[in-house]
Structure formats: C-alpha cells, structure tokens
C-alpha cells in the first residue's frame, strides 16, 4: 500500500470518528425532534396551530422562549395534567383551559424538544430522564 493511500485512509477514518462523536448527541436530538413533530401534529396542533401561533386571545402561541425557559421544569406537568388560570405569554393574558394530555414521559420529552426548537425557540434536547424527574414533582 502506498503511503498516499494510507494517509488518505487515516484521514477518512479520522473524519468518520469525529462526525460519529458529534452526531451521537445530534442524533438523539434529531430523533426526539422528529418524533416530537408527530406528537405535536396529533395532540397539540389543533389548538396551538401548525406554526405554534395559537388562536387570538383564546389559545397562547408557543413562541415565548422566555416563558418556556423559565417554566422548563414545570412544562411536563402542564402538558400531562393540563393548565388553567391566568398566564402571560408575549405580553398578553390567557385564561382558558388546556385539558390534560394522555402522553407517556418519552412522548412529553419529544414534544417539548420539538416546541423548544421550533417557532424561533432554541432550547436544548429535553430528554426522557429529566421529564420523568420533573413529573415526579408535579403538584
């Protein structure tokens, strides 16, 4: 084998390694995100809209990154058990009722990863373990 070919091979292997390491995390995100898109279409989109835009003053949009970040640990509870009472989203008040959603912890993690990284939001992956932990402390 010529030294040229050998160094080429080494380079290729090195690149493969680097991308593999990178995409471990990336892959997990992509899996959560794409499954989350399906959960969203089936369970949330009717109310919150395809673009997370909500519906006038009846249903809040999902594009308030500050609210989502601030309530990150409570979100799994809101989604599982529903939410009512007055909240302020993007400076507007909402006071209707979100019904409870019958979703498993992994589905909640997927849909939260999806909304957390759509509609101009940029949160990291929200994984099943953290959802499970947060669900344990719902009131």
């Amino acid at each position: 084998m010529s030294w040229k070919l050998a160094s080429c091979l080494i380079a290729v292997v090195a690149i493969l390694f680097i991308t593999a390491c990178q995409s471990d995390e990336n892959l997990e995100f992509k899996r959560y995100y794409s499954s989350g898109a399906l959960v969203y279409q089936q369970h949330c989109q009717n109310c919150h809209g395809a673009g997370g835009e909500g519906l006038s003053a009846l249903i809040p949009p999902l594009s308030d990154s500050i609210y989502l970040r601030k309530n990150l640990t409570a979100l799994p509870c809101y989604i599982k058990n529903g939410l009512k009472g007055s909240i302020t989203i993007k400076g507007k008040t909402f006071e209707d009722v979100m019904p409870a959603n019958d979703l498993s912890p992994v589905e909640i993690a997927q849909v939260l990863t999806y909304i957390g990284n759509s509609f101009d939001n940029k949160l990291s992956t929200i994984d099943e373990q953290s959802v499970q932990k947060n669900l344990a402390s719902c009131h």
């Binding site: 009717n46 109310c47 809209g49 519906l55 006038s56 009846l58 249903i59 009722v97 019904p99």
Partner: peptide, 15 residues
C-alpha cells in the same frame, strides 16, 4: 366553546 378537538382549527380557518 369548550370543544377541545376540531373547533379551534375551524375557527382559526373561519377567521
């Protein structure tokens, strides 16, 4: 008004 399923879609479109 309390319809959790298709009504929000309908009225988003009706708007």
């Amino acid at each position: 008004t309390t319809c959790p399923s298709i009504c929000p879609i309908m009225h988003r479109n009706m708007l």
